[in-house]
Design a binder for these strands. Structure first.
Lengths: 263, 263
DNA sequence: CGGCGCTTTGAACTAGTTCAAAGCAAGTGG
DNA sequence: CCACTTGCTTTGAACTAGTTCAAAGCGCCG
């Protein structure tokens, strides 16, 4: 207790300086200090929190700012020519959102809040202006680009995996890792997204994801309660990612310990 | 005649100015003109052509430049913790390569030439320096970031598709579109990559890709000769992408017209 | 209490994988 | 010039992991 991440009572107008922000070193301003940071800080704007299910922005709408997640979590969705949609990412505090609009000035995807979320807004005109003057800002932006692309690549690699349980394990581990960076307990995931969202993200059917949750639970690797997931066996998950699963994950056997009944 | 893309005899030392480059408007310098372009041009370097199968750079190696494809084609591969590798992209002329290293200064993936290819090199220190002085260069870089991210998102959306023939059709169409932008015949694809590479890119087994080629060929949508693929029915491919396939693609029936013989 | 959205479970089905082997083009060396 | 190797591609046949369809369960909010 004492370390909850709800910050419900902070008035929207009270801009918290970057240096006072708990995730400062994980965010864009990382590596920027002194006067440079003050200038960056001065162009940052606080948005009124985005409520659960509400969109931060929509695909196709003009992009005039970069957004950084301060608290909560969001999800980006790509809606293809036909109606079907594809979840392309989940965003935790410290992560950037909407970088794909930085050049086109149009948002390429829709981003919605998975829970009440707070984001900082960095108006593009002023950011570009600042980038012209401050090398450190350019470097930070470059790091952001690298990070973002690495994330997309990881997602592609994840979807390239053949077996569903490998993708699933990889997904959980990647979340766990990001929790760790945020100094949260990496073994207690609070998923704000639905099973459907996860399924889309992983390129699987909802039912498969649901079954995966139950299977991993039954195997004692997870403790699943609704959207709260406790990782009981991180090493096991990693083994699965590596394709080195201890052979019982493959076909979470129906027969329980004792084993005569083969349904 | 006259419009082949082979430029085998151009000496490596002879730097061709951006304005004289056929793909100038598709490349980084697009939108930059006059004195600004001259400055950008002056820091560009020509690399000796990369031979088929040779790496432009390796994952993990220091990244000190951005590369733009001038001719030929390349492929980027991500090698995950374990041995297995994932093809994350193919690069045609005018496209950028290695943008993911711009912030970390380390290459995140390995990029190899699928054929003898020419690339322009843009040293990062000088690029950053120039970006500080010239707003147009910053804008161009931003556009590049947007384009790159859009590409990755498209790849993710592609891998999110359930059916193999949808992914396959989407892949062919995306190539065709890029050919079109290059003013090449969008219906004659010269694939430099192996079926294996395509399979990895699409998240499928090689055999599936091979069968897909033959099926589409038999349906009269493609004319496949080794690695030269002629698109005979672009509209058909699009229909498949949209999930609106004319129902015969689903199960490319064994029975030929006439139909008695069911093998 | 009733309705709604999300999740789970079951059972049948099938698209794609896997394994195995043959086919083919291109190069190498005698 | 031919035999032989090598790497890529195709084809076949069996198998299975994941999808699909259908229905029930469950938690939540009005």
């Amino acid at each position: 207790m004492g370390s909850t991440y709800a910050d419900a009572f902070e008035p929207a107008s009270l801009r918290q300086a970057c240096t006072d922000c708990g995730i400062y070193e994980l965010c864009l301003p990382a590596g920027i200090a002194g006067e440079d940071l003050r200038r960056l800080d001065s162009i940052l704007r606080d948005r009124r929190p985005v409520e659960t299910g509400h969109a931060l922005f929509h695909a196709g709408s003009p992009c005039n700012a970069l957004h950084m997640v301060r608290s909560g979590s969001l999800m980006s969705v790509l809606t293809t020519a036909m109606g079907d949609s594809q979840v392309i990412g989940f965003h935790l505090p410290g992560e950037i959102v909407g970088l794909d609009g930085i050049g086109t000035l149009v948002h390429g995807c829709t981003t919605v809040a998975l829970e009440r979320s707070r984001v900082c807004e960095l108006p593009l005109p002023r950011l570009n202006e600042l980038a012209g003057k401050v090398p450190a800002v350019r470097e930070s932006l470059n790091r952001l680009v690298s990070r973002e692309l690495a994330g997309e690549h990881a997602h592609i690699a994840l979807m390239g995996r053949r077996l569903a349980h490998e993708r699933f394990a990889a997904f959980l581990l990647s979340l766990s890792l990001r929790y760790q960076r945020l100094h949260r307990d990496p073994n207690v995931l609070r998923l704000g997204m639905t099973r459907n969202d996860i399924a889309s993200f992983l390129g699987l059917a909802v039912e498969t994801v649901s079954r995966l949750f139950t299977r991993f639970h039954d195997l004692g690797m997870l403790r699943v309660q609704r959207r709260v997931v406790r990782i009981l066996d991180p090493a096991g998950l990693e083994a699965i990612c590596m394709g080195t699963q201890p052979e019982d994950v493959e076909q979470a056997d129906i027969r329980q310990a004792g084993g005569a009944g083969l349904s």
